[in-house]
Amino acid sequence: MANGAEKLNKSSTRSIYGDYLLMLTVPCFTAYWYYGVRSLLVVAASVASAVITDMLAGIVINKKINTGDPGSIFTGAAIAMMMPSGIPYYVPVFASVFAVAVVKVPFGGSLKAPFVPAAAGFAFASVCFSDKVFDYTAGLRGSLFGATSLGSMLMSGRAVYIGESSVYDIVGGNVAGPMGTGCALLMVACAFYLLIRRPKALVSSVSFIAVCVLMVALFPRVTASFRTNLVSELCSGSLLFAAVFFVTDPVTQPEKIINKIIYGAVCGAICMAMRLLGAYEEPVCFAVLLANAFRPILDSAINNIPQFGKKASRKEVRAE
């Protein structure tokens, strides 16, 4: 079981995923605002496939059939939020099925999965349907740069002039991109909600964003001002969405504060390195998965440092 989940039980899981589902209504509203009813249909298809897969998996492994597990609903909805609105329905369906059947159920459910299922589902879709997952030509009309997403502009190294009005469009989500993750202002609002409900969970997010900002300052992808690079990087793709919804995941996140900080920093460094060097427009889910995989090693490495290790071991060191 992932360390962060050891203290969680069924009721706290409902509470936690209840919070996350409540927060997810905000990007859902954004998606509906910009992309219309089709975005909600994509969400419905994704959530339904995740829930049905969970139920079928319960039948296959002879366990209690899990109807309406909030973890599965969250997984399906989060995957849909990172897709473009014009995506064929089968793509989020496959991604949700993969997330639940391969990442969630085999490890024992939402509380024991060592990886964020939604991140794994989106990564799977990115590998299998990369031409569709990053195709933002359908859906958004009257956006700032037409059908060109910020991520693709940054990948191609095209410098973007961002004036005052452009900044409002970008942080408001009026650019081509994933249907639910574009509005940075609402992501910040979600983060504030999380700050009130679970302040410790945001520690990883803060270090994640801080390292991303540092990487933008050190390795800008376009020849423009720091402000332009920063706004473009943070608002492109699903970076802020992942910072709020995936990096703060209570199951895969470390327990200790110092571990949370390092976990978030590693995740941010991997994400920005993959953006700089990788082949995919939005690699944040791969970064989250890699950070999930490295988390036990990070935990043990940090715990072996006397200053950050257990009190008992420090006493032992003194006694020696």
Binding site: Y90, F94, V102, P106, F124, V127, C128, F129, S130
Partner: peptide, 19 residues
């Protein structure tokens, strides 16, 4: 087939299938 999963041709797809 209407849909192809490119991931199955990659090592991770094979590992998952073998698992």
């Amino acid at each position: 087939l209407p849909v192809t999963l490119k991931g199955m041709t990659l090592p991770f797809g094979c590992l998952i299938f073998l698992g």
